[in-house]
């Protein structure tokens, strides 16, 4: 089943075009990886889909469950089942992580969430990511270390249960142990065969233990290569040089 179909997506930031016509189709149960060197436009892709106002879509379409995503306000995109983990999660004082997630769930579902069930699930989720349950009542991302912020994003992913999750550099700045913990959380998400995943990354650490269906290599705003998990091995070995050359010549 097709979850996302992106056609000829053009995106500009501050009047400079970053994505020059990107095409991508994601089906339920699939995990896609979007790789590429720094500045290729990987995060631009995620932010444009999520609707970050700093990113202007100038052309193209993104059908999400058959509906045009690009016409929806940000919160509607989330309510339709889209999720993006932030590369730099924002600190919001005065709102606890658990109240934030509960408010989000209630606004998505349009009904009250039962506190008892919610707390139980929250506790289990925190434990699975090796986070102290005290994090539930701490202010959202305030005073969290880089690793804790990334884990808190995965907590949100697992609690909100989107149908399509975009993980934007979730592994950057994490130590080996934290990468392993986060990977386990992502694996947990992959168990839902009705959902799909797009992992944006420029290194391959997080991918070693995850099932990957399709890899897209993005260079200077265009996808220059697509393939299976074996592409990851090639990039691991040779880096992006070959793709950058091809992009320059093509």
């Amino acid at each position: 089943m097709e979850i996302l179909k992106v056609t000829d997506l053009h995106v500009s930031v501050e009047d400079k075009e970053i994505l020059h016509g990107l095409n991508l189709t994601v089906n339920a149960g699939e995990t896609h990886v979007l790789m590429g060197p720094n500045g290729a436009g990987k995060s631009t892709f995620g932010n444009a889909l999520m609707g970050n106002p700093a990113y202007e879509v100038t052309d193209g379409s993104a059908l999400f469950g058959g509906e045009e995503l690009l016409d929806m306000p940000v919160n509607k995109r989330a309510q339709s089942g889209l999720f993006m983990s932030f590369q730099n999660p924002i600190e919001v004082p005065g709102i606890s992580l658990e109240n934030f997630i509960r408010t989000a769930l209630e606004q998505r579902g349009g009904k009250r969430v039962r506190l008892w069930d919610f707390r139980k699930e929250m506790k289990a989720t925190l434990q699975s990511l090796q986070m102290d349950e005290g994090y539930a009542s701490r202010d959202l991302n305030v005073g969290f270390s880089g690793g804790e912020k990334k884990k808190a994003e995965i907590v949100q992913l697992l609690m909100l249960k989107p149908s399509l999750a975009i993980l934007d550099e979730t592994d950057s700045g994490l130590d080996v142990d934290a990468v392993r913990t986060v990977s386990r959380g992502v694996e947990e998400f992959q168990k839902n065969k009705d959902a799909a995943l797009i992992i944006i990354t420029h290194n391959t650490g997080i991918l070693s233990s995850l099932k990957v269906d399709k890899v897209h290599v993005l260079v200077e705003g265009k996808i220059v290569a697509e393939g299976g998990a074996d592409l990851i091995d090639e990039i691991n070995r040779d880096g992006f040089a070959r793709f950058e050359e091809e992009r320059a010549n093509g």
Partner: peptide, 15 residues
């Protein structure tokens, strides 16, 4: 901050 509003909205919360 616009970033904070975007962050909260990206989880399904209205503006």
């Amino acid at each position: 901050s616009d970033d904070a509003v975007f962050y909260l909205m990206s989880r399904g919360i209205s503006e």
